[in-house]
Design a protein around this nucleic acid. Structure first.
Lengths: 259, 259
DNA sequence: AACAGTGTTTCATTAATTGAAACGCCCGGA
DNA sequence: TCCGGGCGTTTCAATTAATGAAACACTGTT
């Protein structure tokens, strides 16, 4: 059962970090042990080690919380993607131009992960968090990433054996429908979604490319669906395309001039 | 040697993450093995496991880079500190008011870690990164945190047996000098530093408090030293204090009214 | 006082980790 | 073209360190 090409003990310890969610930011040993299905002594050892390395910290009530080392490493990972130096200022400008949330997401494994979000200033807004994940079949960002993904990944996501969760009434789950949507996205260069992940929300996503010309990320404008009517979508698309071109250029993308 | 109350294998694996710095964002197995002083087979197992859990990712050249899971967890840790929801908007306003870098830092173990930074817009600016660390004896932020730290930590930092690195000519390292500076900081409610960590830089730091009334973090304004002359420092201090009061209030701090 | 729940420590067992060595592949230099 | 060096990967015997049950001390509630 154990395979010699990984370190299963470390992986079990790392998985404890996933227990700390927005709903459960602070947890004590017994709760962690129960939720992880792990004996208290084993869990305590992992927690002690994670705490010593700064990945967790213990608060004054004796409960564990995510530690500052994660913020440090998160910033470092972000810096290495040039998110703060290149993408964030343009995202801020796009937010200012449209007053909608602006997000950037990438593929990680078989999911999309939203790496950054710049919030709009309107009281009614899309309430999601940077760092969240979504499957590749639902939502403007995930679907845009899927459309430009390598064929083996597309096949896997659209396979009859892969379960595609239906979040809302408008979540596309049928493989043929998703293939058609992907083809449309590749042809038009953007994707648009209404309530596929959260009812009442909408998002428009465009690709971000790097020096290789490949789509490496997606930039999206997202907000309440009633602000994404047919009179406004063209403007959102134009602004998003403009910003994506700026970011892509700084990522080293050189557009091919069509003659 | 091995102690049963930690998980030393996991800790060794986690320490590989520290090899990925701004200077070395991308590394291959042999280099990692050499730098960590670890046999290739062992390092490969850790790398495979860290990659499977999303903490590292492998690029097209077969080199490892920090993974998206770190960004996700970094955001989650940051959210749990209310950095993005509470502190960042105020930091942005303070940056706009003064056009200097604004940072927030906390104590982690025996160091200060800068959790967030909002950059100024001037061409000549303080070039540091969010996520960086500094010892508690040098710099306005670390020294402010030290001044309000628990006595055992102060004693440890100022101990004759603790080495206090001299970064520049103005770095204070003498325990008596640091005690005097701490006392002054507690009395005046702020700390001011010129070139203690980086020559030519300056920073002014004020405390952030939470519902318990304790100093839990520090807010600083930082930039090139020539912009922190005696004619300007009072304004910087007033603005920083105002912003710190706003943030502290949202952290639940209730100021005691003096009669 | 009794009980439930917590976090911590101990220790025998054994599972998993470890590192040396072999292997296949690639690249650059002679 | 050949060879050597370096790379990443796999195998396997040795042994180390992880594991989990159980005991313990402490706290809070009834």
């Amino acid at each position: 059962m154990p395979t010699a090409t990984y370190n299963n003990s470390m992986e079990k310890g790392l998985q404890l970090l996933t227990l700390f969610t927005g709903d459960h930011p602070s947890q004590r040993l017994a709760e962690i042990s129960r939720e992880a299905g792990m004996p208290k002594a084993t869990a305590l050892r992992f927690l002690n080690a994670l705490t010593r390395q700064g990945f967790l910290r213990k608060d004054s009530a004796g409960a564990y919380r995510l530690g500052y080392r994660l913020i440090e490493l998160g910033h470092r990972a972000s810096d290495q993607l040039d998110l703060r130096t290149i993408a964030l200022p343009y995202m801020g400008a796009l937010r200012d131009a449209l007053d909608e949330a602006v997000q950037i997401a990438v593929i990680d494994g078989t999911e999309a992960v939203y790496l950054e979000k710049v919030d709009c200033r309107q009281p009614v807004r899309l309430f999601t968090k940077a760092g969240r994940r979504a499957p590749l079949h639902a939502g403007a960002c995930p679907r845009l990433l899927l459309a430009f993904a390598p064929d083996p990944l597309i096949s896997l996501v659209l396979s009859e054996r892969t379960e595609r969760r239906q979040f809302t009434e408008t979540t596309p789950t049928d493989p043929n429908q998703l293939r058609a949507l992907s083809e449309q996205t590749r042809r038009t260069g953007y994707s648009l979604s209404f309530g596929e992940l959260e009812a009442g929300s909408a998002a428009l996503a465009v690709p971000l490319r790097d020096y290789s010309g490949n789509v490496v990320a997606t930039l999206s404008v997202a907000g309440p669906a009633e602000r994404f009517g047919p009179d406004r979508v063209p403007e959102i698309l134009a602004q998003a395309r403009h910003t994506a071109a700026q970011i892509s250029r700084e990522f080293g993308f050189v557009p091919i001039i069509r003659s």
